[in-house]
Every structure is written in structure tokens, then in C-alpha cells.
Design a protein around this nucleic acid. Structure first.
Length: 439
RNA sequence: CGGGGUGUGGCGCAGCCUGGUAGCGCAAUUGCUUUGGGAGCAAUGGGUCGCAGGUUCAAAUCCUGCCGCCCCGACCA
């Protein structure tokens, strides 16, 4: 993409309404624009990141055996009356009446709808297990939207639902999602820590929040320090094998958010030098809820014994749009955003230090073509801004590599390659620079 | 919803107390000079001062009501 033809409205000054780093940087880097409290336009650069995150989540869901579908944003109130949640959900649900006076709502989540879809199609245990997910916009009329896209009212969420014949099957499904989540967040360059979460009336140990550490996190968290850098299963993970060891390695060490925190237990179980008190952002939540919806909505299957039983269900959420903000909170500096490679909107920022100079232009065009041909996303700054302005802008939008091409380097047959994360700069031959970027 | 703040060109702000027909910086446009970390000079364009009502000869400024947005708290991906 050539910057001269792109749509990247960056801001030099900090917008007054943005208090936290990610919100401020997203506005300044031209990623989003607010249209109402908690509601945002995703500008091209922001959308590019959102799609990268979405892609990783989708990829890891499929790898774990989940199947994608797409449910609508608008739902009928009748469905929610069956589960009893139409009244229970409260004012956070946006209710709408259509022209025929039918009660509708803008979906805050999809348990009812997925249960309805499932019960209409599945009758036998032979069709189990299944795990269905979608990545769809949700609306929750938050009391107080804040922190930019981190707590918006309209937000993009991956929500998945598992269906099993019995509790043991549901546990297997839960473990798969647990591991899938570890992998998803790790691929985005995040260190996510699963923490025991409130299971509500169901009870048990089958609910975890995935927390990433950040000073501006909404909740206080307490955990064993070893959890932070614990290695995550690699690409060779076999989801059909026993995943219990992976989960046990994490759940046996202390980790809790403030609502579940037990200070005495924390002190007793975790050595002083391993105690970590910090703040965290919840980016995912997995939950086993048994027959809560299948019973109230009649999602029954016939078992091998010929008897009908309600299916055992779990739900699994990832805040996709929140992750954009969360990644920035975890990865930025004074100059701007520092994108992890996997979610960067472009891999390379190609900086032409003297647009209009025939030799420099030709060298840049050559890089642009070669990188593009290798499938690498390049943002080529071909504008006639001054060098300083271009550097600042590149640092702000945080692309992993900056390839700086100017007349001075061309004379000596070199270009400058800068790694945004470390600030490290190298003078390289064009070939060496290309090789390094291509990895 | 309780508490606190705020609303003035695209962005950041001053002016309001003490009413007199709107100003600064950045950005934009044009020209010249500059050109390896957010350049300089000159000129130009752009604002029903959140909305509605009231007081007054006169309202961004005073009064009343409404709305938007931000921050702190209880809830949540």
C-alpha cells in the first residue's frame, strides 16, 4: 500500500478524551474514530489489525476442532423468553421493536440462538461432540463504556459453544478450548494467564478467565510468577491426546483475580519471591454450564441406551476487538505502538527519504515490488513529507520493520533497516535487508 | 445510576468571573527557501461558540431547561 493513496488520518496531538495509552494511540495512529460513547468506526489501519487477530483466533479454533458458522446480530425476544434471560438480562440488553411490534434485541451473546440451532438439527449422541463458533459483533449497553475499544458497547467477539453427551465429554471439550486459547494469545505475542473464575450456580472448577498483565488493566490479579513465561504447546499439538498435563501445570499454581483472591492461601501456597500482584485485562473466558440452556430450551439427544438426555454445554469467548487495545497496552513505548509481528497491520514500513529523487524513488519501487512479490505487506511512505515527520509517523503506527531508503545510503549501496521493538538499526545491502525481513 | 468535569474552525486550547459582534498553537491551501528524527518566512481559507428558551439596546459571556462527551465507583469479552 502506498501511503499517498491510503486513508490514514493520524493525529499529532493527543485527543482530550483518551486517557489510557491504547485509546490515545489508536486515535493518534488513525485506527479508530469514536462516533458515540463506546461505539467506534474501524479505520483501515485498525481494521487490518482486527482482521489479523480474528484470523489467528479462527485458525486456532479450527485447529482445535471447532466449526465456524455465523449467527445474526438481531435476535427474537421469544428465544430469550424460553431461557428466562429476556427478563433476567436487564438494561444492558439493547431491546428493539420492529414495525410489526415484535420484540427483538441486539444480541449480547448467543447461548439461546445456538441452542435453538442445535436442537433443531441434532437428535442423536452419534452427532456428538460438536463445537460451533462464530466471530460476530455484539452489543451490550454498558453502564459506563470506557478505555476506547477495551470496553465498548459494540464489540467483536468470538463466541463458541460445545455440545457433549456427558460431563466427561464436556471436560474434554473444555480442555481443548483451554489449550486453544493459550495458543491463540501466544501467537499474538501476548502472555495470557488462565485464572480461576467464578462459576456461578454451577460450581466446580470449570471456568477460567484469560488475563494479560497490563498496568491499566481493569482488575487486580494475583498469581505465581512462573505462570507468566510458561511455554505454550507448539504447532504439533494433538488435540485428541490427553491435554490434562498442560492444564494441570497451570491450574495447580495460584492464579486469581481480585474477586476470587484468597490472600491467606496466596501467602501459604506461593513463596514470597514468586508472588506476583499486578493488574490485568481479561481477553478470554471459558465456561462450562452443563444443562442450563439445554434443559430450559429442550436440546435433547438420544443416548446409546435409547434415553433422551439434555446435552452438556460450555461456552468460550474471546474479546477480539478488545484484544486490539490489550495488545497495545502490553506493547507500546513513548513514541507509539510496537506491534508484535503476527498482528501488525503491515510488516514493513518503507520510508522514502527523498520522494521525487529519481534514484531514491527507483530503489523504493524495487523494494516495494520485491517485498510484495514475497507476500509481505508493505506500507510505502511515498509522500513528500520531511524525513523527521516520516520517522515519527512510522514509530507511531508501530510496524515491526522500518526500511529506510535515502540518497546517502544509495551512494554507499546500503539501506537502513530498523526493528521497531528494539530500536536497533543496521546498514545493510538491499539483498541482506530483504533476506532479513523475509526471515 | 451516584459523584466530579467538560462542550468555542479538523485537533489541542484561551476568552466567560467584570455582556459590546471571536482569538492562539497545530493541521489545511498557495508561493519561496529548506530537506537523514514532527523546518522557516509570507499570504490565504475555514467557526449559526452543543441545543432550546429567557434577560438585555446588545449574549460565547448572565439565567432556566435539555443533550453530548470524559473521569471516579458498583457490573462485564
Amino acid at each position: 500500500m502506498r501511503l499517498s493513496r491510503y486513508f490514514l488520518p493520524t493525529l499529532k496531538e493527543n485527543p482530550a478524551e483518551a486517557q489510557i495509552a491504547s485509546h490515545r494511540l489508536m486515535l493518534r495512529a488513525g485506527m479508530v474514530r469514536q462516533t458515540a460513547a463506546g461505539i467506534y468506526v474501524w479505520l483501515p489501519l485498525g481494521l487490518a489489525v482486527l482482521r489479523k487477530i480474528e484470523g489467528i483466533v479462527r485458525d486456532e479454533q479450527k485447529r482445535a476442532g471447532a466449526i465456524e458458522l455465523l449467527m445474526p446480530t438481531l435476535q427474537s425476544a421469544d428465544l430469550w423468553r424460553q431461557s428466562g434471560r429476556y427478563d433476567a438480562y436487564g438494561p444492558e440488553m439493547l431491546r428493539i421493536v420492529d414495525r410489526h411490534e415484535r420484540d427483538m434485541l441486539y444480541g449480547p451473546t448467543n447461548e439461546e440462538m445456538i441452542t435453538d440451532i442445535f436442537r433443531g438439527a441434532v437428535r442423536s449422541y452419534r452427532d456428538l461432540p460438536r463445537n460451533l463458533f462464530h466471530i460476530q459483533w455484539k452489543f451490550r449497553d454498558e453502564i459506563r463504556p470506557r478505555f476506547g475499544v477495551m470496553r465498548g458497547r459494540e464489540f467483536l467477539m468470538k463466541d463458541g459453544y460445545s455440545f457433549d453427551l456427558d460431563v466427561e465429554g464436556a471436560r474434554r471439550a473444555y480442555r481443548k478450548m483451554f489449550v486453544s486459547y493459550l495458543r491463540s494469545f501466544a501467537r499474538m505475542g501476548l502472555k495470557a494467564i488462565p485464572m480461576a473464575a467464578d462459576t456461578g450456580p454451577i460450581g466446580g472448577d470449570m471456568s477460567h478467565e484469560f488475563i494479560i498483565l497490563a498496568e491499566t488493566g481493569e482488575s487486580a490479579v494475583f498469581c505465581h510468577r512462573d505462570l507468566v513465561d510458561m511455554p505454550v504447546p507448539g504447532d504439533d499439538i494433538d488435540y485428541e491426546a490427553d491435554l490434562t498435563p498442560v492444564i494441570d501445570a497451570r491450574t495447580t499454581l495460584y492464579a486469581a483475580t481480585d474477586e476470587k483472591h484468597d490472600a491467606a492461601k496466596f501467602d501459604a501456597d506461593v513463596p514470597k519471591d514468586k508472588q506476583l500482584s499486578a493488574r490485568g485485562i481479561e481477553v478470554g473466558h471459558i465456561f462450562f454450564f452443563g444443562t442450563k440452556y439445554s434443559e430450559s430450551m429442550g436440546a435433547l439427544v438420544t443416548g446409546p441406551d435409547g434415553k433422551e438426555t439434555p446435552v452438556q454445554m460450555g461456552s468460550y469467548g474471546i474479546g477480539v476487538s478488545r484484544l486490539v487495545g490489550a495488545i497495545i497496552e502490553a506493547s507500546h513505548d513513548d513514541a507509539g505502538i510496537v506491534w508484535p509481528d503476527a498482528v501488525a497491520p503491515f510488516q514493513v514500513g518503507l520510508v522514502n527519504l527523498k520522494s521525487g529523487d529519481a534514484e531514491t524513488d527507483a530503489a523504493c519501487e524495487s523494494f516495494y515490488d520485491k517485498l510484495t512479490a514475497r507476500g509481505i505487506d508493505v506500507l510505502y511512505d511515498d509522500t513528500d513529507e520531511r524525513a523527521g515527520a516520516k520517522f515519527s509517523n512510522m514509530d507511531l503506527i508501530g510496524l515491526p520493520w522500518q526500511l529506510v531508503v535515502g540518497p546517502r545510503g544509495i551512494k554507499s549501496g546500503t539501506v537502513e533497516l530498523k526493528r521497531r521493538a528494539t530500536g536497533e538499526k543496521e546498514e545493510l545491502s538491499p539483498e541482506a535487508a530483504l533476506a532479513k525481513i523475509a526471515g
